[in-house]
Every structure is written in structure tokens, then in C-alpha cells.
């Protein structure tokens, strides 16, 4: 007898099948695709985006949205580079303070974002989008439009030193992902994010301080954006306002493609990992098989639509807004 597989189970595993399907597809067209060296390349391009996408996952789980990442990344990257260069230019020794420094910057911007959203009762979409613009402007003011170069070989070893074929930054990102998973699955705060996303009125009625939890989610998101900023700087050795560019599109797309519902309450950081890999495998694979880039954007667009469609049981909705 064929065991019964529910639609829900299929829905949960679809993103992973899509990822495997893409890998098979690209490998069939160009066997070079399936090699450790290429997977390392995909990993390098995916790690900063993974951190950012994991950050925004927490916010999306609550049914809110955060679009401030480009500004937050720009400010965190630039502040990281400034502190590092001011304190001797090496992460070994005092210069290492640049890392907590950048994380504090990310947390602070996240806190402001959350406070504006909760205290002024401005929809998260608008509050975070506006704050993102403020961040871009701020980083421009700090740098005057210049690029800051990071030449510290110890810091750049995140990219240049490899274990098992993958650069150090991959392992750093995986470690942070596990921390995020721990927050999501094993802390009260993490469980409460799901509660808010599943039904805010119910969560409020059960005595949860929803406002406080929302602010915490934005702070956690800000810290992960800062991690993404540090890894993005490690990847290119350049910190500038442009460092944040394109992360909004990539991270939101990844979260959605990974199967986390925009309405909140379902999904999580492992979905996000799959989503980030899907987006980066497409980016890499399109070049590897030699398709022009407009196909790439078009294919991503189609994937987002199908992912959003599959992420929830649409029959439950009578209308969408």
C-alpha cells in the first residue's frame, strides 16, 4: 500500500526538491558544476546573503517585514572598517573590537527600527524601508562616498584560508546559522515569534508582550545584518555604501523561496538556508551553463511566485490584499 503523504508534507519538502532539481539540471548541462571547487564558489557568494536572510527570517516569522537591511549593512560595514583601521588595522589585538562594534551598530539600528514600528505604530514595511534609506544616507555621510579598503591578512583569511575545500567564512556562517536555529527552536523568544505570526490577537490574549517581542526580533535581525556586513567585507576587502546593495532583493527572495510564509507563523532558518542556496545556485548555474542574465532574473521571478503559492494552503484564504 502506498503510504499517504499529506499535501502539508509535500509543501514542506518542495524547496529542498527544487534545490536538488536545480543541481541536477545544471550538472546535466555542465558537469563542471558538480565539483567541490564550484560549491565553494557558491558558498562564498551565499554566506553574506545567508546571514542577512536569516536575520529577516525572524521578522517574517512574526508576519512583519524588514526592508532596512541595505542601510544597516552599509552602516555596519563602514563602521566596522573605520573602527578596524583606526585601531591598528588588524583584527588580532585591539582592532578585533571592530567586530563587536559592528554588531552593536547593527543591534542599535534594529532597535531603532523596532521602536519606530512599535511605538509610533508605523507599519513595519514603511518604517524599515525609510530607516534603510536613512542608513544609506548615514553611511554616505560617514564615507563621503569613498571606499574603505581592508588589507588585514588575518581578517581576509576568512576568504583565503580553506578547510575541506571551503573557506573559513562558510564555517563562520554555518556556526551563526546554528545559533539562529537555537534561538528559533530552543528559546522562549523564538517560540513566541511563531506565536505572534500564527495569530497576534491570540498571542496578545495569552499575555505575551507583543511590542517587546517585535523590538527584540528587529534587534536580532540587525545583529545578523551586521554579521552579513562583516562577511561581505571579508569577501571583497572593501567597505562602502554599495556593500549593502541588492541584499534586500536577495534576502527576501531567499526567505520566500525557502518556504517561509510571508504571512508569518511557518518556516524557519533551515528553510532560509535552502532558499539562499537556491538563489545562489541559480546565479552561479546560469553563468556556468552560459545563459544570458535576463533569463536569470526571469527565472528567479517565476520561482518566487511559485514558492509563495506553495508556501501556504491557499484554500484558507477567501481574499488577499
Amino acid at each position: 500500500m502506498v503510504p499517504h503523504i499529506s499535501a502539508e508534507t509535500i509543501r514542506r519538502w518542495v524547496p529542498l526538491f527544487v534545490l536538488l532539481g536545480l543541481v541536477l539540471f545544471f550538472t546535466a548541462l555542465n558537469p563542471h558544476f558538480f565539483s567541490v571547487r564550484n560549491f565553494a564558489r557558491i558558498a562564498i557568494s551565499a554566506t553574506p546573503a545567508l546571514m542577512v536572510a536569516v536575520g529577516v527570517t525572524f521578522v517574517i516569522l512574526m508576519g512583519s517585514i524588514d526592508l532596512s537591511m541595505e542601510g544597516t549593512i552599509a552602516v555596519a560595514a563602514v563602521m566596522f572598517a573605520l573602527i578596524l583601521n583606526r585601531l591598528g588595522g588588524s583584527v588580532v589585538g585591539v582592532g578585533g573590537l571592530a567586530i563587536p562594534g559592528a554588531l552593536v551598530v547593527g543591534a542599535a539600528l534594529g532597535a531603532i527600527n523596532g521602536l519606530i514600528h512599535v511605538k509610533l505604530k508605523i507599519p513595519s514595511f514603511m518604517a524599515s524601508l525609510s530607516l534603510g534609506f536613512v542608513g544609506v544616507g548615514l553611511s554616505l555621510l560617514i564615507t563621503g562616498g569613498d571606499r574603505i579598503l581592508i588589507d588585514d591578512p588575518v581578517f581576509r583569511s576568512l576568504l583565503t584560508v580553506r578547510f575541506g575545500g571551503f573557506p573559513l567564512m562558510t564555517y563562520v556562517a554555518l556556526f551563526c546559522l546554528v545559533v539562529a536555529w537555537f534561538i528559533q527552536a530552543n528559546t522562549t523568544i523564538g517560540r513566541n515569534f511563531y506565536a505572534i505570526g500564527g495569530g497576534e490577537e491570540l498571542a496578545r490574549g495569552s499575555g505575551l508582550n507583543v511590542g517587546r517581542l517585535r523590538i527584540i526580533a528587529f534587534v536580532i535581525a540587525g545583529v545578523f545584518y551586521a554579521l552579513g556586513a562583516i562577511l561581505a567585507v571579508a569577501r571583497l576587502g572593501i567597505a562602502e555604501t554599495e556593500t549593502g546593495r541588492n541584499f534586500m532583493f536577495v534576502s527576501i527572495t531567499s526567505v520566500v523561496v525557502g518556504g517561509t510564509a510571508l504571512a508569518g507563523g511557518s518556516g524557519g532558518v533551515w528553510n532560509t538556508l535552502i532558499g539562499v542556496l537556491i538563489v545562489n545556485v541559480i546565479g552561479n548555474g546560469m553563468v556556468v551553463i552560459g545563459l544570458p542574465d535576463y533569463f536569470q532574473d526571469g527565472m528567479l521571478g517565476l520561482l518566487v511566485i511559485s514558492a509563495v503559492y506553495l508556501s501556504m494552503d491557499r484554500r484558507a484564504f477567501s481574499f488577499v490584499k
Binding site: N30, H32, F33, S35, R37, N38, R41, I42, I44, S45, A232, R235, L236, I238, E242, R245, N246, N280, G283, N284, G285, M286, V287, V288, I289, G290, P292, D293
Partner: peptide, 23 residues
């Protein structure tokens, strides 16, 4: 060997170049 747009962008060029290296 190939021509690919990277939109004047540092990060995108980085990804395109790694794709080229695989190909």
C-alpha cells in the same frame, strides 16, 4: 570565451567571475 553583464557592480562581478571559473 564569454561576455556577461555584471551591471557595473562589484559583488555581481565577483559572482559572475566565479561562475566563469567553473565553466
Amino acid at each position: 570565451l564569454a561576455v556577461q553583464a555584471a551591471d557595473w557592480d562589484t559583488q555581481k562581478a565577483n559572482q559572475v567571475m566565479s561562475g566563469f571559473l567553473t565553466r
